[in-house]
Write a protein that binds this DNA or RNA. Structure first.
Lengths: 165, 165
DNA sequence: CCTAACTTTCATTTATTTTTGAAAGTTTTG
DNA sequence: CAAAACTTTCAAAAATAAATGAAAGTTAGG
């Protein structure tokens, strides 16, 4: 089977729209659909990207917990493979983006919200209201994301079902 | 009160991380914290950006349903204001991004998943499995996002609470 | 129907992000 | 310990995305 270009393309576009670089997403897609581990060279060839690019993005994927190194005995090369369970993949992404982006945002909002304002004008009142609501919203989201990122597969399925009862 | 720079900064960074351009996010932040409508000129001055940039991004914000035009009698200028309820803001963003990015993705996955493969090898089997799981996952997410985007405020609060029981 | 007040467009410019690839670094092996 | 096999780094180049601003377009008022 030749690599399903289209799947890799779609995954890459998805990444681009959500602030993840295209090559990283494409490498992930490639490793997802290959049932065996690939070497740097093989990834370079399949996606037509440079060695440095593959190296950086594979390391990033490993840091996200989406990809792992694999060694083949009698071979000095490193091989890379992706975790294939898509629910775990989703959780990995949730956990990682939460940690990197949501948590700092949440903290910043809390801090802004904690600063008492001197004046009391329509402007400050509205500002406080917006910040307050945002604080509540992010607090709820925080709990929800934590739960979603740590539930087991059955748990997720159940929770998702609850949305439609 | 001078504009709370920090809030605008944070909102802008958030946008950047999630594929929304900085100026668009910053204009949104500015209009959120101002209890009254602002003209193009005022936005230009507060954020130090060009007329064209403000025009394009305000229109985009209107298309998202986050901002609305306001006319002041005896004035030919257009003024812009943001919807202030942060729960509605969140829903607006969910609805809009779902429509623009998730729905096409979902459709593409369904289509890829529907194509029967000729061969039957470990490669095709794994490919099918990944696509299948992705199909299920996006199907669940699809329902969830629709629901989340259309529930009223009480509904959301209740649903969010369910995650912690 | 003309002019002033305002809005929109879009070719260029500018800024940001991503990629490249050669050099430096590291590990393994004979 | 030398040299081969491989990985990592990073300055420079390329690609992409966003911003500018002057010109074109629109609308309201007289």
């Amino acid at each position: 089977m030749e690599i399903p270009e289209q799947f890799i393309q779609i995954w890459g576009t998805l990444g681009t729209n959500w602030g993840i670089n295209r090559t990283m997403a494409q490498i992930h897609a490639l490793l997802l659909i290959k049932p065996f581990a690939l070497s740097t060279e093989e990834i370079m060839e399949q996606l037509q990207v440079s060695r440095g690019n593959v190296n950086m993005n594979v390391r990033e994927l490993i840091a996200w917990g989406l990809v792992y190194r694999e060694l083949k005995s009698g071979d000095r090369k490193e091989y890379f493979s992706a975790h294939k369970d898509m629910w775990e993949v989703a959780q990995c992404i949730i956990r990682e983006r939460k940690k990197r982006e949501f948590d700092p945002l949440r903290k910043a909002i809390q801090e802004l919200n904690a600063v008492p304002l001197e004046e009391d004008t329509p402007e400050t009142q509205n500002y406080q209201k917006v910040l307050n609501e945002l604080d509540q919203l992010t607090q709820q989201l925080d709990k929800m994301l934590d739960k979603a990122g740590s539930m087991d597969k059955n748990g997720i399925t159940k929770k998702l079902l609850q949305w439609f009862i």
